[in-house]
């Protein structure tokens, strides 16, 4: 295990006009750690995720990432080609709505295989084998490899999106409400899958969710956000079982036992 954080965030702030969506946020994320970010809509958690994953630039602050070669780089100081390469190899992003993370008009297999081809894989047989393998790992019937994801159920689409992200063995995955629009039974299956994958692959992940049960199941650590600020952070079960901040207590007491 590497003692240098994989991701190091300092003084991250982002305003939209007069609204501070993220206000002076900082944390470290180590290899294999899963960080949950919880809070209600408008708390700034999604903006934070978009800043962390370099989809938008913050007004202030740094996000440092330990590259595969061990060097630590500020992701906003990377050149665009470097950043894009990072995003399609070493990072993943799982959107709440699979439509935002999949190509609707190409087959499930091609959706999964795209990142392989983007990094130069040029052997069809091998590409297809890896796509098949990943669809099986996320429990999608491999007989449907050539079907377009729009013919799949929501849960299946989400699993294809996950496979599409993991096929290049990223070290860090960002997830925005990954179980958001799904039925409860489908959610459980997906959560179990995500939990197994993050543990087996030693993935680091930042997961934004408003669902405390999802946070408890998936994350090692939790940050509670409100009004663009982190009001409480710590070990997931500590934050949920012994909340200190009034807002966290309110959040925990507002839901059925997570």
């Amino acid at each position: 295990m590497n003692d240098t954080p994989l991701l190091q965030v300092e003084g991250l702030s982002k305003r939209f006009g007069r609204i501070a969506a993220c206000d002076d946020i900082g944390f470290d994320l180590h290899d294999g750690e899963v960080l949950g970010i919880v809070g209600e809509s408008g708390s700034g958690k999604t903006t934070l995720l978009r800043c962390l994953s370099a989809l938008i630039a913050p007004d202030r602050g740094t996000v440092r990432y330990r590259m595969r070669d061990g060097s630590r780089r500020d992701v906003f100081a990377l050149s665009e080609p470097e950043r894009r390469l990072l995003m399609r190899t070493d990072w993943g992003f799982v959107h709440q709505n699979p439509r935002d993370g999949l190509r609707a008009h190409v087959s499930a297999g091609a959706n999964v295989a795209e990142r392989l081809m983007a990094v130069g894989a040029r052997h069809y047989g091998e590409i297809r084998e890896r796509a098949t393998d990943w669809l099986a790992r996320v429990e999608v019937d491999t007989a449907r490899i050539d079907d377009a994801p729009r013919t799949f159920s929501g849960g299946m689409q989400q699993r294809v999106q996950i496979a599409r992200n993991l096929v290049t063995h990223p070290r860090l995955v960002f997830m925005d409400e990954p179980t958001g629009g799904l039925d409860v039974s489908v959610q459980a299956r997906l959560l179990d899958l995500l939990r197994g994958l993050t543990a087996d692959l030693g993935l680091s992940a930042v997961i934004v969710t408003h669902d405390l049960a999802v946070a408890r199941l998936l994350s090692h650590r939790l940050m509670v956000m409100r009004g663009g600020q982190v009001v409480e952070a710590g070990l997931t079960d500590q934050v949920l079982d012994d909340p200190q901040h009034p807002y966290t207590q309110l959040l925990v007491n507002s839901v059925l036992q997570p």
């Binding site: 710590g234 070990l235 079960d237 500590q238 079982d241 012994d242 200190q244």
Partner: peptide, 8 residues
């Protein structure tokens, strides 16, 4: 729970 780190 304190000894387990579950409570602070």
């Amino acid at each position: 729970r304190l000894v387990y780190g579950n409570y602070r």
